[in-house]
């Protein structure tokens, strides 16, 4: 067991319809299925990322990263 991490799973075009289930079977706790852009977001143990990457129909598994609006306009008015 390793630390749980949030991940972004980008699917290939024509990914099998049950790819979500098979990702779940490999340890992905699904947060959202974003059908319009072919992406599934969720969380898994960091050690499971390599296994998720090998699931048929998966193009990439990336870490969810922090995003902001950046200086110089980051301060609320």
């Amino acid at each position: 067991m390793t630390e749980p991490v949030k991940v972004i799973v980008t699917l290939e075009a024509g990914a099998p319809g049950d790819v979500g289930q098979r990702l779940a079977d490999k340890g992905l706790k699904i947060e959202a299925m974003l059908d319009a852009i072919g992406i599934i977001t969720g969380a898994c143990d960091a050690g499971d990322i390599a296994r998720l990457q090998k699931v048929d129909g998966v193009a990439a598994v990336e870490h969810d990263i922090a995003v902001d609006i950046g200086p110089p306009d980051a301060e609320p008015s």
Binding site: E31, A32, L34, A36, T41, E62, D64, A66
Partner: peptide, 30 residues
Amino acid sequence: SGTGSTGGILAGMNWAIANNCAVISMSLGA
């Protein structure tokens, strides 16, 4: 607080695309 994560941003993009927004503006990044 002006912060977010890739997952939430992708969810927003998915919503805007599913709603056929011709223009999607994103003043954010990493």
